[in-house]
Design a protein around this nucleic acid. Structure first.
Lengths: 145, 145
DNA sequence: GTGTCAGATTAGATATATTCTAAAAAACGG
DNA sequence: CCGTTTTTTAGAATATATCTAATCTGACAC
């Protein structure tokens, strides 16, 4: 895990001031491995002491994404989700509940025929049912629910 | 390309009635390779004859996605985009303009450690700058813009 | 034909997610 | 301190998508 000093460092290395609000957003993302939505981050950061407005939460998320410290994952029909980009990984998205989970990194074959496009990154999105939804689904099919 | 009869067939094979509005949405997606947003589909389908309300456009898109005939691509910070799922392909998303483009299909290594999750599909998202944005970006850096 | 019923459509209201605005506060460099 | 820039703020505004309740349609039975 990253200590407070390390978080401050990584913000400043990316050209971002370490404000209390920005720090709180980043720290929360680093300790949470659940890919929270902006609304969840806003709520969590303000639980004890409401020092971070909604606009600031969104502004800081955008700055963090632009600087490469945070990744935004768009999910069909649902709010975007965020995670601290501290480890390289792919994503699993649940068809039923929209949960986003990390998948262990593996190399992806380079796509051919990119033409004049400029590649930045390349990730795999796996879709299906997450473990809880998968179990609930199986139970339902047996008629026990 | 798919003829009118074939479109009708594929709708009915998926358990969907071939209504004029649903047909129009499907036909538009099949002829357009630009991954339109729901708003663009709504506008296009109504250009000639306003017989398809906004709600119907969204309803039909959802039905088509559920039945597997259409794919929805969520893009960070932008409206969802849709394409007729007639060929297998991956997606390229432009960081700058949000355009979604098809990339030739290639096989993806099966992720390990899926646990109790149930896999449905697996696609690659490539990010970067699309050709037009890439050229404009290069021009700007030379100071000519 | 007429009745019936499920599915489909509609306009507009509503909900949700995100961004904008303008002003105030905080941080920085000198 | 002082001027400047960045950041924050509350609430308004926008964008996107869904819901509501009434209406329409087409298939089928009679």
């Amino acid at each position: 895990m990253m200590g407070p000093e390390a978080i401050k460092q990584s913000l400043e290395n990316s050209g971002l001031r370490c404000t209390p609000q920005r720090y709180a957003v980043m720290a929360f993302l680093l300790e949470s491995h659940r890919h929270p939505t902006a609304a969840e981050i806003f709520a969590a950061v303000n639980r004890l002491d409401p020092r971070c407005s909604r606009a600031t939460t969104y502004n800081n998320l955008r700055d963090l994404v632009k600087s490469g410290l945070v990744r935004e994952v768009a999910v069909e029909g649902r709010a975007a989700r965020f995670d601290a980009k501290d480890t390289r990984h792919h994503h699993f998205i649940c068809d039923r509940c929209g949960a986003v989970e990390d998948l262990e990194w593996f190399d992806v074959p380079q796509p051919r025929a990119l033409g004049k496009r400029k590649l930045r990154e390349c990730e795999v999105i796996v879709r299906g049912l997450c473990a809880p939804c998968s179990l609930r689904h199986a139970a339902r099919r047996r008629g026990s629910n």
